[in-house]
Structure formats: C-alpha cells, structure tokens
Nucleic acid binder design. Structure first.
Lengths: 250, 250
DNA sequence: AAGTGGTCTAGACCACTCG
DNA sequence: GAGTGGTCTAGACCACTTG
C-alpha cells in the first residue's frame, strides 16, 4: 500500500477539500474501482485523525459530483459514471474548443459601441439610452470556420473594453481578469435551421446546409444578465454535447 | 410579520430541509427579494432554536440551487436567477412536454425484443447474445408529430416489459414503478441535419427540412447504462433549452 | 470591534442493512 | 448486534468585511 500524503492542518486548503482530493485521486488511479465501497466515514476519520463531520463533508461533495453514491446502512460506493470533462459546463468557445482538442481562433467582423436592439435591451435589462459593446466574430477551429457569434454586453459593466480587449484573446478571460466578471449560469436555446446566403458565404458551406442557431444569456451569481449572444454554427462540424441530470430538491 | 410554521423536531423531514423550505417559501413569496440579504445563520439558529451547523446545511443547499449566494464577511443574498423550472433536467418526453404546457402522446411503430446493433451493444455494454427491448415511437404534442424516438433497453433489466408496459404511458414512470429503475444522468449529443424522405413522411414535413438528431445514453446512479435512444425531432417546432452552469470542483 | 460566513471538533442519536 | 450513512448539537477558531 503506497503511503498517501498527510493532511495539512491550518493550510489554505480546507481539510474536507484535501480529503475529497485524496479520494478523487484514489478513484482516478484505480485504487478504488467502480462498484466498490470506499472506506466508511468512521474509518477515514480515525485514519486521518479528523472528525466524522469533516469526512462526511468531503463525501457529500463527491456525491454531488456524481463520482460516488451513498446508501444508508450499506456504504458509499464508487460510481461508474464518467467525470464531466468533455461535457459542456459553460460556454466559452475557447475553452470548449480546447476541451475538444482543437485550436480556437477568431476573426473579428465588428467590435464597437452600439445602440442595443429591443431583444438585447430586454435580455440585459438595460435602462433607456444605455449602450452596449457589440462584438461579432467568426469562430474557427484549426482554421476551419465553425460559426458566427454576436455578443452584446452592457457598456457600463466594462466601459473600457474596446481599449483593453484584444479580440483574438478569450473574452471571458479578459472579463474575469480585468473586471472580475465571472459568468455563473447561462440559459441557452438551440434551434435547427438552414444556412442563408450570407451565413453560407461566411462559413464556407452550401446555402441550405443545416445549422444551429443559438441564443444565450449569461448571468452573474447575483442574477444580473451580463451577456447576450446570438450565434450560428455549422451543422456538419459542430455537435452539442450535454450531460443531463436529475434534480431532486424543490 | 406573519408567523411562520414552527419546526418539527423528530419529523421524517430533517430540520435542515424544513429550514431550506422556509427560506425558499420566503423567497418565492417575495418576503425576501433578489439582492437582499437573508438573516444570518446565527440569527436563524437563535430564532428557531437549532444549531448553526444545521442552518448552514440549509443555506448551503440553497446555494447549490443557485437561489442564494454567500459572501464571506458580508452575508448571504437572494439571487435574481430564476429557478430551473422549465429547463431540461432529464429527458422524459412526457415530462418535457408537460413542462412546456403541451399534451404529450405517442404512436407506437415498433415494440419488441430484438438483437442489438453494434452501437447499442457498446453503449449498453451488453454481453454476447444479450437481447434488447426495442421501442420506436412517434412523439406528438397536441396531436402534432414532433419527433421519432428509438429506445433500446437491456432485456435483462426489464424482462417482462413487453407485457407490463402500455406504450402509450410514460416509459420512465413504468420503469421506476415496476423495476425501481431511475435514470440518474444522461449524456446526449445533438446534431443538426435535414429530413430525408422517410422522416419527412412520418413527421409530415417537407423533405430537406431542418431536424435535430439526438443520441442519448442514460445511466443509473451506479454508472450502469440503462437506455440508448436515437431520435429525430422537427427543427421547426422543437427547441433545445438548456441551463449551463460553471463547475468549480475537481 | 462587531458581525458575517467557513471550517472543524467530539460527541450523540436515529434509520437502515446484513449476517 | 454490529456496522453503515444521516442528522444534530454546542461549542470553537479563523478569514473577511464594514463602520
């Protein structure tokens, strides 16, 4: 039995996170296999010299990840469900493409301050007269055009974005680093349609080819809408991959 | 101030669930508004005569729902993010349609025991020679054909389904009630395409109309694959609505 | 300094499963 | 009856925010 690293009390990483990580490592390494029980909370607590509550906190978070599941009176078992690595979490094209193993790049069609459309005003809950940052890009993976994305952001949220953002970089990274803006959730609607002449030309596909139309609104943790995106992606090279989960609460 | 119901110690509903429900009710009723802080854990604990840990457990579960968010040193605030009512959780056509306010119905094209295809064998991890239940249905909403669904389930998981299942009912309900089979997660791939002659005829749309192709594999909590579904939905009447969330762990 | 959330402890009792 | 997970307590200390 290989000796595992000791827990570090008083570290910046809380004990339950360390325990969670230990268990995760043991599962990923195959030391704990799908279907097998993990040690009981009592046992882990005794071994590591921590309270049972702390261990339970770690196990609970693993349950929420879906990598283990608990059965009262029986134990906690390793699930065979794969980790959601390549599943969509949120929405950055750059991250998405990297996760799929492609090289993301963008070609900027437009990047300027604009008056918002009625749809964007409603989506971003803009006040009268408020302007937006308008950013339209062709998204490429390995130099192949994948889709056209039109983003709108409230100007007030990132007033000097025009100066500070290099549109070839990741918009989300810039927003996070420069403004502390982090997307928390996004609601997205996907529709199936056909490419018209303009879209076909930009994406270099035949007119009438199948495409996805996306409409997405992203929100901060406090519920404030921060981004409205309308995009069109090629149906022949783009797939939507989703993990759907049963919710319990409510 | 309207007096809220007292907590019930020793009930079948744990205290933290009762507290969670109380807070949820206050938020839904508007007594606690988006952006406002909820009472501190200390205060709630004192008011209700429970331990702070118990209150924190309730608040944490509300954070996971996304209805509140906590800021260390500041407090816990009501989020303006809408509850995921009409967002896809899992996957039952019946539930989905009801949630969208439509009347679901199905027309059975085929319901029988079959030899699995290579794709299904791999998806369901079938042993050599194992058979499947094959169920093909046209899905209708308010009598309009929406899509064609082909489901495959391991025969071993539901050996007498052919006798026990009325194909006009909800498959998922039957599986849950008769076999204790409950879907936990599903991985789904959606593609955009065009209707061929056969699909067009069944869905009563023009050939070449835009459609969604779905491939879905559903899993039990232990990771065992339990259902493989391939389906084609009309692009003109069906939309994919998703809520994407940022994950933190891992 | 006071108030907040975040973590942790060392117990306790319960409900459940299994031999 | 022994072992498990699920809940709960009454404290404690820390990090952080605000006045």
């Amino acid at each position: 039995m290989p000796s595992l690293p000791q827990l570090t009390h008083g570290s910046f990483v809380p004990l339950y996170r360390q325990i969670q990580q230990r268990l995760l490592d043991q599962i990923r390494s195959g030391a704990l296999k799908p279907g097998e029980p993990i040690p009981s909370a009592q046992e882990i607590a005794a071994t590591l010299g921590v309270s049972q509550m702390t261990v339970r906190q770690a196990i609970k978070s693993l349950c929420e990840l879906g990598v283990v599941y608990s059965r009262q009176g029986k134990g906690t078992f390793v699930s065979g469900i794969k980790l959601e690595k390549d599943f969509r979490q949120v929405l950055s094209f750059s991250e998405d493409m990297k996760a799929r193993g492609s090289m993301p790049r963008s070609k900027v069609l437009s990047f300027e301050i604009r008056h918002p459309s009625a749809e964007v005003i409603e989506a971003l809950r803009l006040r009268a007269g408020e302007n937006i940052i308008h950013l339209q890009r062709i998204r490429q993976a390995n130099s192949v055009p994948m889709g056209i994305e039109t983003s709108s952001l409230p100007l007030r949220a990132c007033p000097d974005l025009l100066d500070k953002f290099d549109p070839r970089q990741s918009l989300y990274e810039t927003l996070s680093e420069r403004y502390g803006i982090n997307m928390f959730v996004a609601d997205e609607v996907a529709e199936a349609g056909l490419a018209d002449g303009e879209v076909a030309r930009l994406l270099r596909i035949a007119e009438g080819s199948p495409v996805f139309f996306f409409t997405r609104i992203s929100y901060l943790q406090d519920g404030q809408p921060i981004e409205h995106v309308q995009s069109t992606y090629r149906g022949d090279r783009y797939k939507i991959v989703n993990r759907l989960t049963r919710r319990n609460h409510g």
